[in-house]
Nucleic acid binder design. Structure first.
Lengths: 191, 191, 191, 191
DNA sequence: AATGAATGAGATTTCATTCAT
DNA sequence: CATGAATGAAATCTCATTCAT
């Protein structure tokens, strides 16, 4: 969490960190480069964060919140479970396609050696409503009965890997392809 | 690839590297620690590999081959597509459950900043037969029509995330749970 | 020397610098901490002093003057050399007991790497009358014949070390102990 | 304490650190300079010590032991308390004259901000025999009755300040001067 | 004058790699 | 081949000082 103010700078620093991690991995993330890319002096990074670790953890937290927002959105509430789920899935898939760096950052973070357990828990709490939604779907007989964590893992694992393929250029996702992906997701979990 | 011989040492070095990467990520992998954990001197690492990058790439290649072997196995060939697929899926899932460090190593490698493109291609070539198998399934109308890469991404993304949950202790997979996971996978891709 | 005015702030800055030096040494003295402890902004320190060195030198000079005043005091002039000396010694000892931070600051200053030779000489000039007094004592046969600088070194070295013990809590000085200390001092220099 | 070996290097590092501290104070001690002066690479310093603080603490400990050896020496044991004390005093005074850097290092260390309490206690334990000797002298009525710590403080405070004067060139100690200094010391503590 | 965020030179520390033994 | 102490380039971090407000 930033010590002081100037949200513009905080944003620029976050953006720089995320992009650099995506390009070179956590091992390649250098404070000097973050500084340069975000247009501040190295010392300034330490005005906002007490260490590289703190910076990375903050980026994680903020990004996770953003991701939660891409899934959990009042506009996505529809008549049926299916329709709501579909809106959420497309929300998430679209987010990942648009911001694959953020998706990658978050994914790699957990195995980066920079984890703060407290932050993980804090970040996870943003997804509470999603859990509730899925549990309701199970009660209504819409989707398979099993640990909600597994369902979420199955769903986002699939999304992530597909988006990664797309980013790497190994595939080229068309409108159609996306729908088939959704069908795989839905067919997998529906009863 | 190792410069010289003594397969025992090579194995010990691989094991150490994999375990350490899982614990601290690539950013945290230190040659000194690899040496200590594998019971050799730092200098010795450079007898076997010309650099950290070379070591990591070799571990990647060897592990990818091992993984391919866990999926593509003559014993898994059955009467029907479904049965063969099932055997393969369980083969992979079982491998990941048993060696999550290897699964994680391989997964993170691509975004580690240590990639050698040549190695990636070489590693991927091991999975050719799997592609053929899936394409045949599509021709036969067993599974959905779409880019095979996407199907693979969908499947292994799901497996990885579920295994990671299990490793972290967020869920506890029983015999039953595994079957439901398989059903999610199969229901997702079947026609 | 302060650039401008507001004696309250100057005093607060001095106090802060002295206390911090006592706690962490000159190597640990940070302008940011001086600012915080004295209740001003870092920038303000540079309104009053052109550099850290200038600040430290000013504190040194002012404190040395204060110390001279604790020793050289018209009220201390008595009938005999012994009585005057005794009054001075108690004056100095009492001062050091009351302001050990100032004593320590001054003591460490010389080896701090922040010395300005001019300031040292200026500070020393305050002690001229003490030199005269001691020389007179030698002429009268009250105290041993030897370089006055040595006598002063002997006396204040003793006082400082005893006070430091007391500050550290290694000893607990009572009224009695102080008298014995004085006797050590006097017996050492008397003829 | 050194991690590994090569006592030559350890000695060179110690010597460099002591000389540099004497010249520029603790604030001026730079690892790069210690490395250069002792003829090793900066990295090598960290092979021997885990931090600047550890290095400084080790120098302190070793130097304190050396100092204890300069005072507590079987050859100094004489017929009378007076004679033994005299030998010890000259031993210490001589040591300080010969190695003023070490004396200064030790003196400044305590207020350097680099103290490790454990080390202080460990270093002090070397002086146990001296305490015993002084206590015996009090029992025999040779010297004044008072806390031994105060006597030691009085004595070494005097020695240090006189030696410092000499080093600075403010005085020039002759054979004679030294004897007078001893007389001040002895007259001060004798009964 | 006063502020405190921003700076960047410079310090400490790390770690992949080398090399004498 | 094996070793591990030594290296030094490069990274992280600090902090005196500046400067826009």
């Amino acid at each position: 969490m930033p010590k002081l103010k100037d949200q513009n700078k905080v944003n620029a620093i976050h953006r720089a960190a995320i992009e650099l991690v995506t390009k070179t991995g956590f091992s390649g993330l250098k404070m000097a480069e973050v500084a340069k890319k975000s247009g501040v002096a190295t010392g300034t990074l330490y005005v906002y964060y007490k260490s590289k670790e703190a910076l990375i953890n903050d980026v994680y937290l903020v990004t996770k919140e953003e991701i939660a927002g891409a899934i959990i959105n009042p506009e996505y509430l529809k008549e049926t479970f299916y329709e709501t789920f579909k809106a959420m899935w497309y929300g998430y898939f679209g987010y990942c396609l648009q911001y694959p760096e953020k998706m990658l950052f978050v994914e790699q973070f957990i195995y980066s050696g920079y984890i703060s357990e407290i932050n993980i828990a804090k970040a996870d709490s943003n997804f509470e409503p999603l859990d509730q939604f899925l549990i309701q779907g199970q009660k209504n007989g819409d989707i398979k009965e099993m640990d909600v964590e597994i369902i979420k893992a199955h769903l986002h694992g699939s999304v992530h890997e597909i988006v990664k393929m797309n980013v790497r250029g190994d595939i080229r996702l068309e409108e159609d392809g996306m729908h088939t992906c959704f069908n795989m997701a839905w067919d997998g979990i529906k009863t």
